[in-house]
Amino acid sequence: MNDRRDFLKKSLLTLGAAGLTGSLAQAFNFSTGAKAKISIKKGDVILFQGDSITDAGRKRDNLNPNDSNAFGNGYAFMAASTLLNKHADKDLKVYNRGISGNRVPDLLGRWQTDALELKPTILSIMIGVNDFWRTKDRGAVNTPEQYKAQYKELLDKTVSALPGVKLILIEPFGVNNVKHVKDDWYPEFPKYQQVVKELAQEYKAVFLPYQQVFDQALKRNANGAHWTTDGVHTTMAGANLMAEAWLNLVS
């Protein structure tokens, strides 16, 4: 537990040095060096990508944009429905292509069809918890360095095919002492979180620190089961918390 506390203290200092001030839940835009704000433009194509947290039970045979059945019941659905309401005049197309259990290599295997061919102008990626988790529960071998190299390959393919895309790289999170997330996740899991921050900086993307979002929420309700069912997958409250933080990126 002390390792986790030490990491959080170091993370806050690092983020502060990078210019992330104010609310711990505030995302940071490394392309501008300021608090993140993404302008929604007419005709934008917005894509949510990731694992089960993004998937959230969506009907995967429904590939349509702006369709509730294609979104499941998680943060992506909540954020997308708000976007389509608030920006009804902008003819947005919003997709969800999260798939439960995915790691970065899984994204690489389907990236051409499930990302590049959709030609998103705003691409939100939340991936990484399974890249670590499978090393704990299934004996997979995947170091933070390997995770970073795989993620860089994904991002290189993306910026090469979509040079103007606005990237949102989302920090994977865990709520400690809720079912699967225990003290033995630390200090290793935070190394994977740090990778995402470093990649956001390298690729001048928006970095959304969901770990800080949940840590801050725990100050309002310290029962982690209020926010997640198992330390990773969200309750209704947790999904809404995530959607709210994502929507704070948008102007």
Rank of each mutant, 00 (worst) to 15 (best):
Met1Phe: 11
Arg5Met: 11
Leu24Arg: 07
Gln26His: 12
Thr32Val: 06
Ala36Arg: 00
Lys37His: 10
Lys37Glu: 06
Asp44Ile: 07
Ile46Arg: 12
Phe48Cys: 03
Gly50Val: 03
Gly50Lys: 02
Ser52Gln: 08
Asp55Gln: 10
Asp55Trp: 05
Lys59Pro: 04
Asn62Ala: 10
Ser68Trp: 02
Gly72Val: 03
Asn73Val: 13
Ala76Cys: 08
Ala76Asn: 03
Phe77Glu: 11
Phe77Lys: 14
Met78Gly: 04
Ser81Thr: 13
Leu83Pro: 02
Asn85Pro: 02
Asn85Trp: 03
His87Arg: 13
Ala88Val: 04
Ala88Ser: 15
Lys90Tyr: 04
Asp91Tyr: 01
Ile99Gln: 07
Gly101Val: 12
Arg103Ala: 08
Leu107Phe: 04
Leu107Arg: 00
Gly109Thr: 02
Gly109Gln: 08
Trp111Asp: 02
Asp114Arg: 09
Leu118Asp: 03
Ile122Gly: 00
Leu123Ile: 04
Ser124Ala: 11
Gly128Tyr: 03
Val141Gly: 07
Tyr151Gly: 05
Lys152Met: 07
Leu155Ser: 09
Asp156Glu: 15
Lys157Glu: 14
Thr158Arg: 08
Ala161Ser: 15
Lys166Leu: 00
Ile168Gly: 01
Pro172Asp: 07
Pro172Trp: 08
Gly174Asp: 07
Val178Ser: 00
Val181Cys: 02
Asp183Val: 00
Trp185Lys: 05
Glu188Leu: 13
Gln194Tyr: 10
Pro209Asn: 04
Asp215Met: 05
Asn221Val: 14
Gly224Trp: 14
His226Leu: 10
Leu241Phe: 07
Ala243Leu: 09
Leu249Tyr: 01
Val250Leu: 13
